[in-house]
Amino acid sequence: MSYLVNRLLSMMLTLFLISVITFTVTNILPGDVAMMIMGTQSNPEALAGLRQSLGLNDPLIVQYGRWIGGMLTGDWGNSLVFKEPIAPLLLQKMKASALIVLFSMSIALVCAVPLGVWAAVHANRWQDTAASSASLVGVSLPDFFWGIMLILLFARGLGWLPSSGFIDPADDIWGAMRHALLPSLALGLGLMAHLTRMTRATMTGILNQEFIRVARAKGLDEGTVVWRYGLANAVGPVMTVAGLQVGYLFGSIIVIESLFNFTGMGWLTYQALLNRDIPLIQASVFVIAAVVMLANLIVDLLYVAVDPRIRLS
């Protein structure tokens, strides 16, 4: 329990530092919120008045205090572009992104783990070379390349799946899945390649361990030796890498969601950056950071469940 408290405390500390950095950086950036609101042609006096009323003339530390106070009490302000409160907007977009992040992670894990194990079992033979070469191609190419290829093949060419848009699963689960599949695949292919290589490397090491030889010497069949004795030891390391990739995925969705016109966090952040919607940028960065940290905390807690050697202290 004290472990969890420690972890949450250190997470708070990290979030505080992130909030300071985001706030400072967005304030150093060129661009003026008042001018963004009123337009470049506006009356200088009206602009000055708006600045005064928005508190933009206050010292930075006072502005930060006001902002973080609002973040903590749930008043996240209004988006300049979308003209609506930020908190419900972010929540809605986060749900959309969670759909493709979880979907792509599942696709990647379901394919990568068996493929990696298979490559490790046949280490240094043609099966291994084939799997390793394919995953090297996978990690080398950027996500948007896969996105474009998938659109060309499944949307334009075969016409099986829609190439853009987002549907809320609450409204139409089948439609939601159809719309989420291509962006998830585009995100998942690179991830899958990465996790395949990781699984292969981990399993190769494990299969050379003495306890694997002992398991064989007990007369257990090869399936049990590899898929139970071996894989149980690989779950932790593979999971950790997968958890770290959540951060990478939240970077990738900015490009992929824009490519598929999938209106999630990535798309929203892109719009915010494009239009210098500073309150929205600050809140998005903060939320993404929190989600990524939470994902890693969950992975660390799961690690304890799969590896009895790790104790929470």
């Binding site: 361990q209 306890f211 002992v214 398991a215 004795y229 149980a232 030891n233 590896d307 050697r309």
Partner: peptide
């Protein structure tokens, strides 16, 4: 075998 430290599966 030689290594009692590694002869047993650590997660079972």
């Amino acid at each position: 075998f030689q290594e009692p430290m590694t002869s047993l599966n650590p997660v079972f």
